[in-house]
Computed example of a mutant assay.
Amino acid sequence: MPESPPAGAPPAADPDPATTVPAGPRPPAAGDLDLPGIGRIDPGAAGAGPVGVDGSTLRLALVVGGLVLAVLLGFGLGRLNPPPATPSGAAPATATHTHAPGTGTHSHDGATAAQAGGADAGGLSISSAGYTLAPSTVAFPAGRADVLRFQIRDERRRPVTRFAVVHDKPMHLIVVRRDLTGYQHLHPTMAADGTWSVPLTLPEPGVWRAYADFTAVADDGRQTAVTLGVDLAAPGGYAPRPLPAPATSTTVDGFTVGYEGTPKAGETLPVRFSIRTGNAAAPLERYLGAYGHLVALREGDLGYLHVHPDPQDEPGTVTFWMTAPGPGRYRMFLDFQVAGVVRTAAFTVTVA
Rank of each mutant, 00 (worst) to 15 (best):
P5D: 04
P6Q: 10
V21D: 01
P28I: 09
A29Q: 11
G31Q: 13
G31K: 07
R40D: 04
G47K: 01
V53S: 09
G55I: 12
G55R: 13
L62Q: 13
L62E: 08
V63L: 12
V68Y: 08
L69G: 10
L69T: 13
L72W: 01
L73F: 00
L77M: 14
P83C: 11
P92L: 09
A95K: 03
T96F: 12
A100R: 14
A116F: 08
A119M: 15
G123I: 02
G123Q: 00
S127M: 10
S128A: 14
A129R: 09
T132A: 14
S136Y: 04
I152S: 02
R153C: 00
R158T: 14
R162F: 11
D168S: 13
V176T: 04
R178C: 02
T181M: 00
Y183G: 00
Y183T: 03
H185S: 12
M190W: 02
T195R: 02
S197N: 07
L202Y: 04
G206R: 00
G206C: 10
D220Y: 10
D220E: 10
R222L: 09
R222Q: 13
L232I: 03
A234P: 10
P242Q: 10
A247E: 09
P263S: 11
P270F: 14
F273G: 06
F273Y: 15
N279T: 15
A280H: 05
Y287T: 03
L294G: 05
V295C: 05
R298V: 00
E299K: 03
G303C: 05
V307I: 15
Q312M: 15
D313W: 02
E314G: 12
G316F: 06
T317C: 03
W321S: 14
T323Q: 06
P325A: 06
D335H: 05
V342Y: 07
A345H: 07
A345S: 14
T350K: 02
V351K: 01
A352K: 10
